[in-house]
């Protein structure tokens, strides 16, 4: 019987609640300037995006660079549900994620038999097609964009981010997740061990698309305006960069990557003309000196607390 209330879980829970409470307090008492709030909510959105892309690229080893396409599907579907159909926010977000997952399934089935760079190009093409489809839909504003009210608060963004990360993390730790990792390590060996590689690849892809859609929905319902141009291949690159920066295949790495990259962008917002130049130099230098990213494939956490737990358990025996 696993003890769910081990020290590690309790400390994590306390940490999450404390973090939420501190930020929420700063917002409620109007101490937090809106620009910081924007950055924090963007960090939540990008954490969901990078973690879900990490599931596809890092855990399952499939080279996808069309993540912005799924984000766009989620953003537009949720906007249609909340604004055009006047549905509740949560339904909109969920609908966006589900439709995005469906898109992932439809795209994944034929393309996932491609390997390496070819898969990358096919997903890139998919992302661009999605963008052009929305560009041509006049009832969602076409190229000029779709304006919608900003309903997402820090509470929503944070809660959805925590739930998404826990779900993805648990998927990775499950039997299915192990199967995905085995595909990354050696697809042929995995197949010969009786793993249905196509099934797991498509599964990871669909789950990744689901959460990308969710993140897109949060983005749409926070940013006042969504435009097809926002979801171009450059946005996919941004997400990919976060994943690789943090550490491909490390969930905590993806989170760190999203935080670091968003913070760099935010810190450099005051010098817009230099922002992308500095980001570019940072990327190149980072890749040259640490191509595995900040975390590598390691996970960082409170495992030392767990070890103590295990020791305690052992000494009792």
């Amino acid at each position: 019987m696993r003890n769910w209330f081990n020290r590690k879980n309790i400390v994590s829970l306390l940490g999450i609640v404390l973090l939420y409470a501190v930020v929420q307090g700063l917002i409620v008492f109007d101490i937090m300037p809106p620009f910081y709030k924007l950055t924090l909510i963007l960090i939540c959105i990008y954490i969901i995006l990078s973690t879900s892309l990490n599931l596809i690229n890092g855990i399952t080893g499939q080279f996808s660079i069309g993540h912005a396409g799924f984000m766009a599907v989620g953003a537009y579907v949720s906007a249609m549900v909340t604004v055009i159909m006047h549905g509740p926010l949560l339904l909109g977000l969920f609908a966006g994620a589900v439709v995005s997952a469906l898109a992932g399934l439809i795209v994944g089935l034929p393309t996932l038999r491609l390997k390496g760079d070819y898969l990358a190009i096919a997903t890139l093409g998919f992302g661009e097609i999605v963008r052009i489809v929305f560009l041509n839909m006049d009832f969602v504003g076409g190229a000029a964009g779709f304006t919608l009210p900003s309903k997402i608060t820090w509470t929503w963004a944070f809660l959805l981010m925590v739930v998404s990360v826990i779900l993805i993390k648990n998927f990775v730790g499950s039997t299915h997740g192990r199967a995905c990792i085995s595909i990354r390590e050696n697809e042929i060996a995995a197949e010969s061990m009786g793993i249905n590689t196509t099934k797991y690849k498509v599964m990871a892809f669909t789950i990744g698309a689901f959460f990308a859609g969710l993140a897109g929905g949060i983005y749409a319902n926070y940013m006042y305006i969504i435009q097809p141009g926002t979801f171009s291949f450059l946005k996919s690159f941004d997400i990919l960069v976060m994943v690789v920066l943090g550490g491909l295949g490390s969930i905590s790495g993806g989170i760190v990557g999203a935080i670091v990259y968003t913070l760099i962008s935010a810190l450099l917002a005051g010098i817009p003309e230099w922002r992308l130049v500095i980001t570019a130099v940072f990327l190149v230098v980072m890749m040259i000196f640490r191509p595995t990213g900040i975390m590598g494939t390691k996970e960082f956490g409170l495992s030392f607390l767990r070890k103590k737990d295990d020791k305690n358990a052992a000494s009792k025996n």
Binding site: N57, F63, A120, F237, L240, V241, V244, L245, L248, L276, V277, T279, A280, V281, F282, L283, V284, M287, I288, P291, T292
Partner: peptide
């Protein structure tokens, strides 16, 4: 993938 990210970096630069 690391090489691709570098290429993206050079492109942005």
């Amino acid at each position: 993938i690391a090489a691709l990210i570098t290429a993206i970096g050079v492109s942005l630069f």
